[in-house]
Simulated assay, not measured.
Amino acid sequence: MDEPIRNADFSQRVVLATEALPWEASPQPGVARRILDRIGGEVARATSLVRYAPGSTFPEHEHALGEEFLVLEGVFSDEHGDYPAGTYVRNPPASRHSPRTAAGCVIFVKLRQMSLAESVRVVIDTAAFAADGPARLPLFEGPQSGESVAIERLRPGESRARHTSAGGEEILILSGDLVDAYGSYGKGTWIRTPHGMPGSGRSSAGTVFWVKRGHLPAPIRAS
């Protein structure tokens, strides 16, 4: 059964080994997904991994509240261009496109999670950073919302500074390992940490991860 609500309590920490999750068929032939969180049905606030089979397409549609995605495997395409693995894209609210892929692809995608004030489309190739370079590659900074998105790296034996993110933190491990006070996590692990919860961690082998901060609601407290 297709569940309209998954991991929708943003006051809770969630850890998912995404590579162990089953692929669920979508209504569109050739398109399957691993749903990480969702509020709603086919039109939903959602975070997912989406797999397009070779030669598959998706009808033209509008993203009323925006879409952001990171291509993890293969090449994702639409009428605006081709996006190989490592490409980060933000399609702002009210944008439209017709996704397709020739060779097949897997993307990490977040839907209906943008401010209506966003109007600029963003396309960034992160592949060179993933190979080598500085510790952080900024992808988006929302000066009014406080949201930030980046690709970050820890080298072997390096630790993250202890921190508490206002608005929470969300991580997808792209390579390597990450260890914190709660456990050890490998490639493909998705971690959502709620507003105000402290975090830290280290990597023994080195790691590269996508991270978003400042976007989760603060818990509503009784007066």
Rank of each mutant, 00 (worst) to 15 (best):
D2K: 03
P4L: 02
I5H: 01
N7F: 02
N7H: 10
A8H: 07
V14A: 00
V15A: 06
L16A: 00
A17D: 14
E19P: 00
A20N: 08
A20D: 09
L21A: 02
W23R: 05
S26Y: 06
S26K: 06
P27H: 08
P29W: 09
P29R: 11
A32Y: 09
R33Y: 03
R33F: 02
R34C: 05
I35T: 13
I35Y: 00
L36K: 03
R38G: 00
R38E: 01
G40D: 01
V43K: 04
R45Y: 05
T47K: 00
V50L: 09
P54E: 08
S56K: 08
A64Q: 04
E67I: 03
E68W: 02
F69S: 00
L72S: 05
E73K: 11
G74C: 10
V75C: 09
S77R: 15
D82S: 15
A85V: 09
V89G: 01
R90F: 02
P93L: 04
R96L: 10
R96F: 06
R96E: 05
S98V: 11
R100C: 10
R100F: 13
A102K: 15
A102R: 15
A103E: 15
A103I: 15
G104M: 13
G104C: 11
V106A: 04
K110C: 02
L111M: 04
Q113V: 01
E118Y: 08
S119E: 14
S119H: 15
V123C: 05
A127E: 06
F129L: 11
L139D: 04
L139C: 07
F140W: 07
F140Y: 13
G142C: 05
Q144T: 14
G146K: 12
S148N: 07
V149N: 00
V149S: 09
A150R: 12
I151V: 15
E152G: 06
R155Q: 08
R155C: 07
E158C: 06
S159N: 12
R160N: 12
R162S: 13
A166C: 03
A166W: 02
G167P: 00
I173H: 03
I173C: 01
I173M: 03
G176I: 14
G176Q: 14
V179E: 13
V179A: 11
D180V: 12
A181K: 13
Y182C: 03
Y185Q: 10
K187T: 15
K187A: 13
T189I: 07
R192A: 04
T193K: 04
M197S: 11
M197Q: 15
G199E: 03
S203Q: 10
S203H: 10
S204W: 13
A205C: 10
A205R: 14
G206C: 12
G206E: 12
T207V: 15
V208A: 05
V208F: 02
V208T: 13
F209Q: 07
W210E: 01
K212G: 04
R213Y: 02
G214P: 12
G214S: 10
H215G: 05
P219Y: 15
R221C: 07
A222N: 14
